[in-house]
């Protein structure tokens, strides 16, 4: 479904230019659960941002179902994120002083759905992550694990094809971290492709395939037959 060919990412120009990614070739099939690992500065976040179309490659091809994503305009990339991708972040990135329901509604609002439909779908999504009794809570009133669940509900509410997760358990203790991973794994089993950056081996263990990056290049790939 996703095909990266010779992806290169360079920041700056001339002598100060730093190459963060080079020669990345990667193929991700629909329904896969891919973990990206690597030390700090290995380019794993940049790769994830490129996959999430928040960033664009300097060179190379990014094909999504035969669509050249790398050359899309800014608005087209926004539409791509709106309809195809879901995001969860290490720091949850929920809107402050905004209820869970309102947070989860946001992607639906940008899809132009009616008020009632938005509320219904947001409620359903929160129910799936087990927070149907917390819909009117604001992030400040929720624990870290609960906040990440709201974030997952927001990522999943518009039924995306791919879930992009940037260290989803980074701010959580081991127990909550595994609960979140179980949740993500459940969505993966329902057919959603998951691409996740992590630096914890036991979190990466949820993935069917782990890609190790080093100095902007793919060092090795480990397949976990499950």
């Amino acid at each position: 479904m996703i095909l990266l060919e010779n992806i290169e990412k360079t920041y700056g120009a001339g002598e100060t230019a730093t190459t963060v990614l080079q020669g990345i070739n990667l193929k991700i099939e629909e329904g896969e659960f891919v973990a990206i690992m690597g030390p700090s500065g290995s380019g794993k976040s940049t790769l994830l941002n490129i996959l999430g179309t928040l960033d664009v490659p300097s060179r190379g091809k990014y094909l999504f179902l035969d669509t050249e994503v790398g050359t899309l305009s800014q608005d087209q990339r926004a539409l791509f994120r709106r309809h195809i991708l879901g995001f969860i972040f290490q720091g949850y990135n929920l809107l402050k002083k905004t209820t869970s329901l309102e947070n989860v509604e946001i992607p639906l609002i940008y899809q132009g759905l009616g008020v009632k439909t938005c509320k219904m779908m947001a409620y359903e999504a929160l129910k799936k992550v087990g927070l149907e009794d917390r819909i009117f809570y604001e992030p400040g009133q929720l624990s870290g694990g609960q906040q990440q669940r709201v974030a997952i509900a927001r990522a999943m509410v518009a039924h995306p094809k791919v879930l992009i997760a940037d260290e989803p358990t980074g701010n959580l203790d081991t127990k909550r971290g595994h609960e979140i991973m179980e949740l993500i794994a459940t969505f993966n089993k329902q057919g959603i492709t998951v691409i996740m950056v992590t630096h914890e081996e036991d979190i990466a263990a949820y993935a069917s395939r782990t890609i190790y990056l080093r100095d902007g290049m793919i060092e090795k790939e480990v397949n976990r037959a499950s």
Binding site: D75, A78, L79, R81, R82, F87, L94, I106, P107
Partner: peptide, 12 residues
């Protein structure tokens, strides 16, 4: 940033 990540266009 969050809004852009979930699909808001510049014009939104």
């Amino acid at each position: 940033g969050i809004r852009m990540a979930v699909g808001a266009m510049a014009k939104d």
